[in-house]
Design a binder for these strands. Structure first.
Lengths: 216, 216
DNA sequence: TAGATTGTTAATCGATTAACAATC
DNA sequence: TAGATTGTTAATCGATTAACAATC
């Protein structure tokens, strides 16, 4: 109803959490949800939920709440989840294989369409029905939207550069190193050791303090 | 030099990144680093680096920079990384196994001392030299400091409750569900699908926008 | 001393939250 | 109408950043 404002980064980080909760609500046949319920289920506060949802436009009904299906539709659309986004996984070590085997990715609209490595012993074999290609074969023709890097840190920047050259618009990096990518490419990193170190801080400074780690 | 202020959450999230960079500097025999260099290597801005480090106390030397070794010592100490923290991994699916095989955890002071599952076919077998025990065997006597949850979402809250009962002070959750834990237990969650959805937003709203996802 | 770089202040910006009028 | 709940405002809080005096 209002002129569209830019959605704040903090809100973008939370939209997928709301979406997951809404999916659960649909599974349990709820058709309507209040900001209070949604906040409980998402581990947040109702005022924040209403503020976040207000950036999508005004879709709630006073005295009633939000329509679950319509909200899912709106969030899905805002997140750009309308069509499938092909994913390439580079580096088929333990983690890369685990992700390649993760059926949930395809279900959620992120089908793994390419697996890449430089190890001659791995190239040609397949994981979950997808054949591993040599990294050199990576090309813009592959139509890959998102690259996932699960290589050792030493080669991660080179891999990122190749993914960018191949036209990916986003990279999810699991290598423990700071990557540099052009402005137009979105980047988030996940580092398990780093998470454990942050947890170590709060565990030793006894005062809880965290809630949900993401990427950046 | 100043009275100790509480370290802001945003700063705590960055200390492990600085630590990683300082480790690299040590490996390349640098003994001193300026806030400008550190910022470049960590993908940040020098003012932020100086502000962050100022919460540790005043350890830089004007006109010179920071002593790499001393800074590592200080960050290590603040993060509570002085002694090893035993880690238990619950749920030995693809991801749990990948983490159990990750040698980097032990190197960084987080040795995996327990593997737990409820599948009778897995209990008794071992991964990376650690035997998988039944979840029911989990006990406070195990001396586990941190629990990592890599189970399906349906059982994750129950697992979290058991870990809390066993005395863990921190939990790293990979299950796609919002967990509830007592105040005194630190919690962070990593959800790959959620990261991809956030990336999808920035990729489709062409304007980059992210930098380093963590947990919360 | 001249040059470099810190530590800190203060301004700015963005995120959170409580409160409540609007309204279903 | 009475009750419930949204959408929005405004206050507050925390994080970022530029600027510069302090000082090695």
């Amino acid at each position: 109803m209002e002129a569209m404002r830019r959605i704040p980064d903090a809100t973008v980080d939370r939209l997928p959490v709301y979406l997951r909760v809404l999916d659960d609500l649909t599974a349990s046949r709820s058709t309507t949800v209040s900001s209070e319920q949604l906040a409980d289920l998402a581990g947040m506060n109702a005022a924040k939920v209403r503020k976040d949802l207000s950036y999508l436009g005004s879709y709630g009904v006073r005295g009633v709440g939000y329509d679950v299906d319509y909200l899912r539709f709106e969030i899905t659309s805002q997140l750009g989840l309308g069509q499938q986004s092909g994913v390439a996984i580079v580096g088929l070590g333990n983690l890369g294989r685990a992700l390649a085997n993760h059926a949930g990715l395809t279900v959620r609209g992120f089908p793994v369409t390419a697996l890449l490595d430089t190890d001659a012993r791995k190239v040609g074999t397949s994981v979950s029905g997808v054949t591993i290609s040599h990294l050199d074969a990576l090309s813009p023709d592959d139509g890959i939207a998102i690259g996932i890097i699960t290589t050792p840190p030493g080669v991660a920047q080179d891999v990122a550069d190749r993914l960018v050259a191949a036209g990916v618009r986003a990279i999810l990096n699991f290598a423990p190193i700071v990557l540099t990518v052009p402005e137009h490419v979105a980047l988030r990193s996940v580092d398990v050791t780093l998470e454990l170190q942050v947890l170590s801080f709060y565990a030793s400074h006894q005062g809880s303090g965290t809630a949900a780690a993401h990427g950046s």
